[in-house]
Structures are given as structure tokens and as C-alpha cells.
Design a protein around this nucleic acid. Structure first.
Length: 487
RNA sequence: GGCCCCGUCGUCUAGCGGCCUAGGACUCUGGCUUCUCAAGCCAGCUACGAGGGUUCGAAUCCCUUCGGGGCUACCA
């Protein structure tokens, strides 16, 4: 990509037939990072030529997802730009114009073959062990046949004529790639109803929008010769073609391509579970790329500084939830208290743990430092802090039996006794008093003694540090819970 | 089937002919620390798919083979 001297223009052009998923976002992230790294423009274009499958909701969701991740675009929906519109469904007249030109030039031709006829011939090709694909039947049509087709009311598609020979291009990630045209059949540019197909729209738009670099999924690698064929028909000089870089796949937990079956792939799913956008980006950046030097944790800023296509792999990567969680935990620990608070509050409110009053927020703010290093996702603040706000407190069913025994009951009785006498209800006092009473006097192991108190007070054997928790809970509620745990 | 792409620990990766008895991270196992859970620290397990070449020397270059994936639509 270094030989290219044009100002860099990269586009991310999803077809929103569903929520943007992990693979799409990894592509968007690399597109964005490359544009930012080179000081070029990042273009966001919606490929909605297939209106049967693309919906407005998905388009909006795609816009929201990119925004949430912080992948801001210079041209595209909402911000506009000099080469708009950026929704292909609003550019239909442009594609029609070029299609007409290709037809007039003889690069394209009308094909009247019906779907059934094509399917039949494809089947025959398969049986004969011949490369399947359009056989070029309609390249020439006898006048009487044409008259018959028209009389039958057939609506023709427009096909691109692939000349003999081959197409070779240099992929920045894979090197030189060649496709023999024997395996690139005449492809459809315009449907029978007059609407354009991806193959036409993508090429026309990349040229018209002056895109210089196309970084996209590996699945589009074999469609590149078709795209180049359209450039040729448009009269674009080879040196003005975009540079292609086909990114390796991101695969699911098992082996195959990412799908809903093996783990959640929609970015919205991760957002709702408390994953940080910067953690998702950092993790995704590591799939197919690496900053080198044994480095992994990078900020968005560092990502744009370090990202180069040369360091992108050619082999596919598997998505690993565990590693994402680990990185998310790292990022959470890096957050300032204020930032962590603002990001946690929506989760607590949504779970009805708090209403959002100032008093509640103050408590959350005091409690957050206690759990910051104990959570891997923001959603985990909910089970961690619920005990501080429970109006009807109940001990967790799994933990309840653990404080029924004689020893635990003795611990709770003793705890109640010594704490009644305490004046200063702060964690330091609580700890020293309970250490004397339970560890020294009763001779119990700390984990046994404090474990019982923990369950009684927080309702679970897993909680933030005990004494700090009791301080936050307050004297009244703490003693109340200890008492109600005593039979 | 055909065409194309890919192949280093379980996973993500470093490596671009000697620094590799292959490094880091996640996971897992053991230990330390410890009021639980985490975090942190220490240790351990585990990899160049296979076979041929080229070379003084190959994870790194070439070939074959095996394996995985993609495409093969009036989807993108």
C-alpha cells in the first residue's frame, strides 16, 4: 500500500441485513484505523441494494453501533459529504446511467434466461463436472427468439460480458492473485426489475467516491475480478483502481464462520452485557493484527498510531470470549472513578437496584472502588452491589444453609454482642473488634468466622470486602441482618 | 466437483535464514498473598500439520501432500 500516493480514502460498506456483528466490526475497525493512521478520510456507506433483506431499523442500528464504538466517519449517513448520498438505495439513477452506458458500449447485454432455465443448466454443468456459471447463451440472441421472449413478457437482466483471459491484482495482504475468466462467468449487473446488484453498485460507488483502499472481508476476494471488470467498463485507468486488502475471517467458538449458533455475535449483545467499547475494539484489533513487541493493551489512540496493513495476517482467527472478558476487566481497572460511575449507573438502574437518587449514587460511588478490580464486565456491578440497596433483604438460597450450623450461629451471636457496643461504625474499628472477638477469643480461622458474617450481612459468600461493606451498609441495617440470621 | 485463500501452544499471536533448546497474552494446573471473590506475584503444561528439497544453517524460501475455510445467486 506504500506505492499509492493518492490521499487515502477508505470505506466501510456493510449491507445491514441484521445487527452488525463481530466480523463486520473488526472490518470497520481496521478501515477506521487505517484511515486515521494515514490521515485519510473514513467513509461510511450503506449497501442496501437488496431492499428485500435490508431494513431501516438495521441501518439505524449500524449507525448507532459505529457511534457507540467511537468509530467516527468523515463522510456518510448523518454527516453527508461531497460524494453523497451514501445510501445506495438513493443512488439508483446513477447505477441506471452506468448500466445504460455499459449496454451501449457492448460491455453488457440483456439476458432473458429464466431462473428455472439457469438452474437447469447449472445442474447439468455440475453433473458434467464443468465449472458452473452462466454459459453466455444470451450474448447473441436470434431475432425470432428475442421476439418470442418479449412476447412472453420476460424481463431481462443485464449481464456483464467477461472477456477471455484473466484478471490479476495485488492484494496488500495476500500478494498477487490471479483469476482465470473461465471461472468468472458473465455476471448480473441489473435485476429483471431494473434494480442494481452489489457487483455494479460497489464498483461504481468506489470509483465515484474516489475510494483508494478497499479493506474488506476475505469472502469478497473472489468477487474482485468482477469489480475490476466494471472499472474497465467505466474507463478507469488501472493505476486509479483502489488497492485491495482482504482481511481474514473471524470465526466462531467452534470452527466455522461466525453465526448466531455458536455464541453471540451482535455487538449490541456485548454492549448490554457491560463490555466497554474500547475493550471490544482492543480485542477485535488483536484478531488478525498485532502491534508486535509483546504488546496487547492499546488505547484507541495508540491503535490508530500503530495500525498498518503490513501487520495484518492472512490467516483466520477464532473469537475467544474469555480473552475478551480478560481485556474488558483490564480496561475497567483502568477507568477513573467518575468514568466507572457514569458507565455503571445505567446497569444498576436498568436492574432496578437503584432509582438514581443522589443519595444512592453517592453510595455507589463509595462502593465502586471496592469492586473495580473484582468485575470483568459492567453488568457485574449489579450482583456485587445489590445487597447495599435491597429493601427486602434475603440471604442467597445457596449460601443460607452455610450459616445454619452451631458454629456459625455462635459467631453471629458473638458478632451481634460486640457490635452493639461499638460507637465508631467504620471498617477499621469493625475489623479490629471482630478480630479480637472471633479470631482471638473464639479461636476461629478468619475465613470461617468472617465467612459467616459475610453471608449474614451481604447475603452471599461472594461479596466486596466485608468490613467496608458493613460500613457502607450502616450500623442499623448490618445489625438487623445479623439478628435476622440468628435462629 | 471447480476456482481461490489459509496452516506456530487449546485460543489470539511474536517470528519475516542464524539472536528460537520458539517469546508474550488468554485459558488451564500448582503455589504465594489473603476476611470471600477477584486482583497481584511465582511456577508449570502445551505449538512450527506431514513429507521432500534449497542452504553451512529453515518456523522462516521452493515443491508435494494432508487439513481448514471462502466463492461457485436476479445475496453481499
Amino acid at each position: 500500500m506504500s506505492t499509492d500516493t493518492r490521499p487515502v480514502r477508505v470505506r466501510f460498506a456493510p449491507s445491514p441485513t441484521g445487527d452488525l456483528h463481530v466480523g463486520n466490526i473488526r472490518t470497520a475497525l481496521f478501515d477506521w484505523a487505517y484511515a486515521r493512521h494515514t490521515g485519510g478520510q473514513f467513509i461510511f456507506r450503506i449497501e442496501d441494494t437488496d431492499r428485500e433483506r435490508v431494513t431501516d431499523e438495521y441501518i439505524q442500528a449500524a449507525i448507532d453501533t459505529l457511534k457507540w464504538l467511537g468509530l467516527t466517519w468523515d463522510e456518510g449517513p448523518e454527516v453527508g459529504g461531497p460524494y453523497g448520498p451514501y445510501l445506495q438505495s438513493q443512488r439508483l439513477d446513477i447505477y441506471a446511467e452506468w448500466a445504460a452506458k455499459f449496454l451501449a458500449q457492448g460491455d453488457a447485454y440483456y439476458c432473458y434466461c429464466s431462473s428455472d432455465e439457469l438452474e437447469e443448466r447449472r445442474e447439468a454443468q455440475r453433473k458434467a463436472n464443468v465449472a458452473p456459471g452462466y454459459d453466455g447463451k444470451c450474448r447473441t440472441i436470434a431475432p425470432e427468439d428475442l421476439a418470442r421472449y418479449i412476447a412472453e413478457g420476460r424481463k431481462p437482466v443485464l449481464r456483464m460480458r467477461m472477456p477471455d483471459g484473466s484478471t490479476t491484482f495485488t492484494d496488500s495482504i495476500r500478494g498477487e492473485v490471479t483469476f482465470d475468466h473461465n471461472f468468472v462467468p458473465d455476471f448480473v449487473l441489473v435485476r429483471g426489475d431494473g434494480s442494481p446488484l452489489y457487483t455494479l453498485a460497489v464498483a461504481v460507488d468506489d470509483v465515484l467516491m474516489k475510494v483508494t483502499h478497499v479493506l474488506r472481508g476475505e469472502d469478497l476476494l473472489s468477487s474482485t475480478p468482477r469489480q475490476i471488470r466494471v472499472y474497465q467498463a467505466m474507463g478507469v485507468k488501472p493505476e486509479e483502481y483502489p488497492t485491495f486488502a482482504h482481511l481474514p475471517f473471524v470465526m466462531g467458538q467452534d470452527n466455522a464462520k461466525l453465526s448466531k449458533r455458536n455464541g453471540e455475535v451482535s455487538i449490541a449483545w456485548y454492549r448490554d452485557r457491560g463490555f466497554l467499547p474500547e475493550a471490544i475494539c482492543n480485542y477485535l484489533a488483536l484478531l488478525g493484527w498485532s502491534p508486535g513487541e509483546d504488546r496487547e493493551n492499546v488505547t484507541m489512540q495508540e491503535l490508530t498510531e500503530l495500525f498498518t496493513v503490513e501487520r495484518v495476517h492472512s490467516s483466520p482467527a477464532r473469537f475467544d470470549m474469555k480473552k475478551l472478558e480478560a481485556i474488558n476487566g483490564d480496561k475497567i481497572r483502568l477507568l477513573s472513578l467518575e468514568d466507572l460511575l457514569n458507565r455503571s449507573l445505567p446497569f444498576l438502574q436498568k436492574a432496578n437496584v437503584i432509582d438514581g437518587t443522589d443519595a444512592e449514587i453517592a453510595v455507589v460511588k463509595s462502593a465502586l472502588p471496592l469492586i473495580q478490580e473484582r468485575i470483568a464486565t459492567l453488568a457485574e456491578v449489579v450482583p456485587m452491589l445489590r445487597f447495599l440497596f435491597a429493601t427486602k433483604f434475603e440471604v442467597d438460597p445457596d449460601s443460607a444453609p452455610k450459616i445454619q450450623d452451631e458454629q456459625s450461629q455462635a459467631v453471629l451471636a458473638k458478632t451481634n454482642e460486640v457490635l452493639q457496643a461499638i460507637v465508631d461504625w467504620d471498617h477499621a474499628t469493625l475489623e479490629s473488634v471482630l478480630r479480637v472477638a472471633l479470631i482471638e477469643e473464639m479461636g476461629l480461622k478468619p475465613r470461617i468466622a468472617f465467612g459467616a458474617v459475610r453471608i449474614a450481612v451481604t447475603g452471599s459468600h461472594i461479596s466486596p470486602p466485608l468490613f467496608e461493606s458493613m460500613e457502607l451498609l450502616g450500623r442499623e441495617r448490618s445489625l438487623e441482618r445479623i439478628n435476622s440470621a440468628i435462629k
